[in-house]
């Protein structure tokens, strides 16, 4: 049990709730962004080790003792990637919304029925 994991899962559920129930397309994208934040938080928390420090080697963390003193650097590197991809995906999705709004002058997703079956 860890408070960070709890916050991460709570953020994911909040985001999924927003994506499932909201009608405004911008709010759906915001829900997606909240889910992304939750996933990133959980990933970083997985790499955390109690009582250790950031994976940067300097006078406080000598090279020889690095393995015993730093937290896991791999999840941090992966989250760095995930954040950038998240920004790109969100920006592209918002662009689609801008185009859709220009066509129909509506942000309500129920009015876009062209692909609905």
């Amino acid at each position: 049990m860890n408070i960070i994991f709890l916050i991460g899962f709570a953020l994911m559920i909040t985001g999924f709730w927003g994506m499932l129930t909201q009608k405004n397309m911008i709010k759906i994208i915001l829900g997606l962004a909240i889910v992304e934040t939750g996933v990133q938080l959980i990933m970083v928390a997985f790499g955390f080790i109690e009582g250790r420090t950031a994976p940067i080697l300097d006078s406080a963390v000598p090279v020889k003792k690095a393995v015993e003193m730093i937290v896991d650097p791999v999840p941090q590197a992966l989250v760095l990637t995930a954040i950038v991809i998240g920004v790109a995906v969100n920006a592209l999705a918002l662009t689609f919304i801008i185009k859709m709004y220009q066509k129909k002058k509506s942000l309500n997703i129920t009015e876009y029925r062209d692909l609905k079956w």
Binding site: G47, P73, V74
Partner: peptide, 14 residues
Amino acid sequence: ASRELTGVSAEYAE
């Protein structure tokens, strides 16, 4: 919770 670096992370740190 993990207690120490394992696998590829330990290799990178070392």
